[in-house]
Amino acid sequence: MKITVKLFATLRTGRFDEKVIQFSNNITISDTLKEIGITSQEAAIIFVNGRHAEFDQVLYDGDIVSIFPPIGGG
């Protein structure tokens, strides 16, 4: 199945802005992060198709996963 992964802010550095990645079935967000080399420490907010999702959420063909780093300054 194909998943579109969108990275934001500093997560793009040395990686990509947006990429369609081919995966086998029944993968989770955690598996996807591992595949693209992002640790759970680096990812604060995940959206799947514009909705907040937990790391253990299972992905389906065509899902769009957006990953944001922790932004906490004031």
């Binding site: 934001f8 802010a9 500093t10 759970s40 420490q41 680096e42 604060a44 907010i45 907040h52 944001f68 780093p69 922790p70 932004i71 906490g72 300054g73």
Partner: peptide, 29 residues
């Protein structure tokens, strides 16, 4: 170059949960 805005409704804990899950992570600022 980045920023975010969000509104937690008066009867919601959604941002509370988000902030708790982000605690201890390396904040990029």
């Amino acid at each position: 170059w980045f920023g975010q805005v969000g509104i937690q409704a008066e009867n919601s804990i959604k941002f509370l949960k988000l902030f708790l899950s982000a605690q201890g992570k390396k904040e990029i600022q």
